[in-house]
Amino acid sequence: MRVVSLVPSLTEAVALTLPGVLVGATDWCTHPAGLDVARVGGTKYPDLDRVRALRPDLVLLNVEENRREDAESLRAAGVPVRVTYPRTVPGALTELAELLAELGAPAEPAWLRAARRAWAAPHRLAPARRAVVPVWRRPWVVLGGDTFAGDVLHRLGVINAYDRHAERYPRPNLAELRDQRPELVVLPDEPYRFSADDGPEAFPGVPCALLSGRHLTWYGPSLAEAPALLADQLSRPTLAG
Rank of each mutant, 00 (worst) to 15 (best):
M1W: 05
R2P: 14
R2F: 11
V3L: 08
L6R: 11
T11G: 12
E12L: 12
A13H: 00
V14Q: 00
V14H: 00
L16G: 11
V21E: 08
V23Y: 01
G24E: 02
A25E: 01
A25N: 04
A25H: 01
W28E: 09
W28C: 03
W28Q: 12
H31K: 11
A33F: 06
G34N: 02
G34S: 14
L35C: 07
V40Q: 08
T43I: 01
Y45S: 15
P46K: 02
L48I: 09
R50F: 06
V51E: 00
R52T: 12
P56I: 00
V59L: 11
L60E: 05
L60V: 11
V63F: 06
V63I: 12
E64R: 03
E64Q: 10
N66R: 04
R67A: 15
R68H: 12
D70G: 07
D70K: 01
L74Q: 05
R75E: 13
V79H: 12
V81S: 04
T88A: 14
V89G: 02
V89W: 09
P90A: 13
P90R: 14
L96F: 04
L96P: 12
A97Q: 07
A97N: 07
E98M: 11
L103E: 12
P106M: 00
E108N: 06
L112N: 14
L112R: 11
R113V: 15
A114L: 14
A118I: 15
A120L: 15
A121K: 12
P122R: 15
R130K: 15
V132Y: 00
P134F: 03
V135T: 05
W136V: 05
R137M: 11
R138D: 13
P139L: 01
V141P: 01
V142P: 01
G144E: 02
G145K: 04
D146W: 05
T147M: 10
T147P: 02
D151V: 06
D151S: 02
V152H: 04
H154I: 01
V158M: 02
N160G: 07
A161E: 03
A161V: 08
Y162W: 13
D163Y: 12
R164D: 15
R168E: 11
R168K: 13
P172D: 04
A175K: 13
A175P: 03
E176N: 03
D179R: 13
D179I: 08
P182A: 10
E183C: 05
L184H: 08
V185H: 02
V186P: 01
L187D: 13
P191R: 15
Y192M: 09
S195P: 10
A196R: 12
A196Y: 06
D198S: 09
G199P: 01
A202Y: 14
F203G: 05
P204I: 15
G205T: 07
V206A: 04
C208N: 07
A209P: 01
A209D: 05
L210S: 09
G213P: 08
R214T: 04
W218M: 07
Y219F: 12
P221M: 04
P221N: 07
P221C: 04
S222M: 09
E225C: 04
A228F: 03
A228I: 06
L229F: 10
L230V: 01
D232H: 08
Q233M: 10
L234R: 00
R236P: 02
R236V: 10
T238E: 06
T238I: 14
L239G: 02
A240R: 03
G241V: 02
G241N: 09
